[in-house]
Structure formats: C-alpha cells, structure tokens
Design a protein around this nucleic acid. Sequence first.
DNA 1: CGTGTTCTTGATGCCTTTCAAAAAGGGTGG
DNA 2: CCACCCTTTTTGAAAGGCATCAAGAACACG
Lengths: 254, 254
Amino acid sequence: MLVINDKSRLPRAGIPCAACPLRAKPVFADKSDADVSFIQSMKIDHRLIKAGTDIISPGETNAELFTLFAGWAYRYKTLPDGRRQILNFLLPGDILGLQASLLSASQHGIEALTDAEVCVFARRHIWDLFVKMPAMAYELAWLGSREESMVDENLVSVGQRNAAERVAALIISLYRRSDALGLVNDRTFQFPLSQQHMADALGLSLVHTSKTWSRLRRAGLFTFSGGRLTLLNPRLTARMAAQFEREATPRPLI
Amino acid sequence: MLVINDKSRLPRAGIPCAACPLRAKPVFADKSDADVSFIQSMKIDHRLIKAGTDIISPGETNAELFTLFAGWAYRYKTLPDGRRQILNFLLPGDILGLQASLLSASQHGIEALTDAEVCVFARRHIWDLFVKMPAMAYELAWLGSREESMVDENLVSVGQRNAAERVAALIISLYRRSDALGLVNDRTFQFPLSQQHMADALGLSLVHTSKTWSRLRRAGLFTFSGGRLTLLNPRLTARMAAQFEREATPRPLI
DNA sequence: CGTGTTCTTGATGCCTTTCAAAAAGGGTGG
DNA sequence: CCACCCTTTTTGAAAGGCATCAAGAACACG
C-alpha cells in the first residue's frame, strides 16, 4: 500500500497547526491566526492508522472528531448478512466523524483505506467551538453539507447510472478531488481502491466491476498500474459519467 | 392528493411559533421561550406550496431555509437525459434547504409531494443564529447530519438491497417517521407517493416497482387504498428490509 | 361522461449476478 | 533470490433479476 514513513513513527505529529502543510494548499480557505490557534487548542492527538483498520467503528458512541491529515479512508455501512455499502471516500483535509459525533451513536463505520494519519479533536470541544467560534461552527456545518452532497451524488450513480457510467463517475470524482489537492501530475494520481472497494461503492458485483473496469481501460479511457491511475481523457470520462458537477473551492480546513 | 385546507387560504399563517402545533408533538425537543422567540424573529414568511411545484429549484442560488410545516416533499437530482433520483423524503418538522443555503448553489431540487406549508427563514439570518444562538446552530448541524444519515440509508438500499427489500425498507422507514409524528392510527397512515416516486427513489423501473409493490401487497404485508397504507406486519417488514435502525428521538425543531 | 394520468400485466431481452477456476501480484521465510 | 502462500484480478459460462416494450384497466378530474 502506501507507506507513509519508514524512519520515525510520527514525523509530523509535532508539527503545529500553524505550519500544517495541508493548510498551505490553495484548496483550503485562509484562516486567521486566532482560528488556527483555536484549532490547535482543540487538537488532542495525532494518530497513525494502519490500512484496513477502523477509525470509527459501526455503533461507536462518543466518537471523536477527526481531520484526515494523510492517506485515504471511507465511510461504510454493513447489513446483517455481510453486504457492505461504501458511502463515500475521504481524502486528506476531509472532516471525519462529524455525523458520528453529533448524533449519539455512529450509524456507519469509517475505515482507513491506506495507512493514514488523523488529527484528533475531542468531542467535548465541539460545543466550545459553537460557543466561541461561530464562524468555524458555520464551516463545520458547511463541511457536513458538502459530505451530504457527495453522498447525494453517489446515490444518483447507484440509482440511475449503468455500470460503465458508475465507474467513470467514480474515477472522475476522485480525479478531481485529488487534483484539487495538487496530487495529480500529468493526469496521473494515486488510486488505492481495490476492485472490491469499487464494487461496494458502486453497488455492483466484484466480477462485473472487474469486467467493466477492464473494458473502460481497454477502450483507452485510462491506464492503471502500481496503484497509480492515468486518466487519459478527463473530458470524455466526465461526459461518459453523464454530468458530474465540479466542487466549490476553496473550502474550510479544520 | 392531500387537501390542506378548504375555507381560508392560510389558516395557520398567523399562528405564532410559541403556539406551533408541530412543536407540541413529543418527537420534538423542548425549547426555551427565548429560543422560540428567536425562531419567530427569523421567520419571514409562511408559504403555501402546491403539490408538484419546486420549493427549491436545482441550481438555485441564495436559497432560503425552510421548515416543512405541513405536507410532504422530496429532494431530487436529475441527469441531463432526464433520469431522476429522489434522494430522500421530507415530512413535517424536517428542515429543508440547509445544504442549499450553506453551499453557494443548490445541487439538488426540492419539490412538494403534496400540498404543503413551509416556514421561511431568511438565509441572511442563519449567520445571526450561529453568532447569537450557538445551541441552535448546533441543532442545525445536528439536523444536517440526520439528513445525511437518511441519505446514507437510502444509498444502502439502492446499492445492496433487491427490489422487494427496497420497497419494504421504504415503507418501514416512512411508517416509522410518520409514527413518530403521531400520524399513524391503527397501523394506518397517509402514503402519498406515486409508484413513479417510489421507482425514482429506489432506483427501479416503474414497471418493476409496480410488480414488486403488488407482490408484497398480495403477500399480505400491507393494504393500500385511497392514499392510505396499512402496514399489517411492521416487524416482518423490518426484517424483510434486512435491518433498519430506529431514529434517535426527540429531535430539534427550528 | 370524456380525457389524461396512474397502475397493472404479459412478453421479451439484456445487463448484471452467480458460480467456478485460472492467472497475476505481493509479501514472507528459507 | 527463489519458493510458497494468500490476496486480488481476470475470464468464461450460465442463470436470473430487472428493464423495456406494449397495451389494457383503473382511476382522477373537470
């Protein structure tokens, strides 16, 4: 998978929020020093998560709030018989566990897709934030709405698009989100999903996902090797997915 | 459909929030007089919406915030070629347009399913609410998370459940929500969806929805006539839907 | 009592699933 | 560095659930 570091355990754990490398990216809205230091004061931990482990478990109560600092994750729900639906994917800078920390018990799980790092904010501080930092509370609500909007779009995919359109929509969506983070070089970016992940996200069987994936690849839409995807024709892919709106930017980082 | 009133145009328009009949229902959390009068001060209109008309249009900017006072509505998205996905249904007391008013342009539309009444809150007042009323801002975020959680569950349906399970899940979900509002009598409640609505919500064709619907009806799961549905066996229906969590209650009403 | 909408039902076809098994990677220990 | 094992991906074949087409029935409305 994606190896975050090799020498030290948490090389970036000590980095203050003011010097956060994520925050420097143009996708994220500028913040006042006061805001950043409030964020710093809320942050109680910087945690390394191994790929494949839960960051928030289904049914967990009193879940903390996180910001994904590095790596990928996904929200999912599981039916009693084991069927799993991936609700949406999470990339660096995304808030994680807002729903879980507002509602009493988490209705979903969140699992690290790659090795990941998260900034941990104590649940009990969220209330402080609403009282003392209305602008940031507003941004939190904004981020929540943005996530809902992503789930909306996934529901449109699964409910209305055929297999090829779904795969195309998934690729273009992750391509654009990676691009916004500056993670796309020469139309190439890290694409750490297994076909099982794609199948569970798209509501397709593993076999049919595989066949659709290779059909699109052979059709010259993209190349894929070593976990890196090159999207040869983003325009065509977007058209193939039958509409796919761009994101508003910049957005808040908490 | 559902005729709200016959004599006067807006019989309840003049009712102050303090005397709101919705608020009296046990599903909704108690609020202080100060909170209620703040809500009253934010409310700029009480509007009657005819069934089938948009409350928020797709792409609308500067959408206001609403609380659904009476009737049903639904959020939807449409693809360029006309395919429509219903994202979730809205019942009295639900907040409406939060995502649209936080994000710059509405990514979805909201349409009245029956004749409906809405309380209108000016978008510009939302910011005031965050500054002056942190507890209510928190509740707003809570309601946003709750809506996301409903979309999550619909995504699980469409992605993982087969046709019969989807129909059962839809029925039990609307049954429970109606029940929480005290709208269920003797297992019978108003069910104003056409089969086209169900099809668009469940990601099924109209024909297959009709066949599945009548198969479940003939199997003795429910009876339906005159827009009213009697759920003969809620337990069985819930089991048939393969898990369906109950809602936390009470919840905030704004 | 017409007329348009919604619902029902039958027939046909295909997109997707399921079953099965081989091929390809990836990681680990000898 | 190769052998071995486990996970992931690929392919083929067969079945089935759901979509599409078509048209009649039931219903709502003016």
